[in-house]
């Protein structure tokens, strides 16, 4: 490699090691038709998935297409408020701007009636008692704070039912 050396008069100059330039861009996101329908139902504390007309799998939250068939999912299916922990992780990193006391548990939860898990928080149970197959239910924000977002569900908590057998969720685990 070519060595580049500074001219004599610049030898003593302090090098500029970094510059900070702040960039702020604002966006107005469009959820799309499928997600809008889902989120509108969330404001009624209902979880409504969509069934693919080809493979008949029920997707939640719906994104507009069946990811394997590439066709719109339009048939709506009301899902349970409870589900099964398919897998999970115990988080010890202060990730959510310190909003959560660590450790906390993030889990893949397959809602009753759905064919795919969603990711959400598990609370109201010691983190080291969370396990695969555990049955959990949604805990909603107070009615006047509920909006069109999955954050209207504060977290999931054990619902007291016996564990689901591995066979019942192993396709997604």
């Amino acid at each position: 490699m070519t060595d580049i050396s500074l001219p004599e008069r610049l030898r003593g100059a302090e090098p500029v090691r970094s510059i900070r330039t702040f960039a702020r861009l604002e966006y107005a996101y469009t959820p799309g038709r499928a997600a809008s329908r889902f989120l509108n139902q969330v404001t009624n504390k209902r979880l409504v998935g969509q069934r693919c007309p080809v493979c008949e799998k029920v997707y939640v939250p719906p994104r507009g297409s069946c990811p394997t068939d590439g066709v719109p999912t339009e048939d709506e299916v009301e899902l349970g408020q409870s589900g099964t922990i398919v897998s999970f992780c115990v988080v010890n990193v202060p990730f959510m701007a310190n909003l959560m006391e660590i450790p906390y548990v993030g889990a893949l939860i397959q809602l009753d009636g759905a064919d795919i898990p969603i990711m959400h928080l598990i609370q109201e149970v010691p983190y080291d008692q969370v396990h695969m197959g555990m049955r959990v239910e949604a805990v909603w924000l107070p009615d006047d704070e509920i909006g069109p977002t999955l954050e209207s569900i504060v977290h999931f908590r054990p619902n007291g039912e016996p564990d689901a057998p591995y066979e019942s969720y192993k396709d997604n685990a």
């Binding site: 469009t30 959820p31 799309g32 038709r33 997600a35 590439g70 066709v71 719109p72």
Partner: peptide, 9 residues
């Protein structure tokens, strides 16, 4: 009204 997936399909 449409997200990118819905625009493309």
């Amino acid at each position: 009204e449409l997200n990118e997936v819905e625009m493309l399909m």
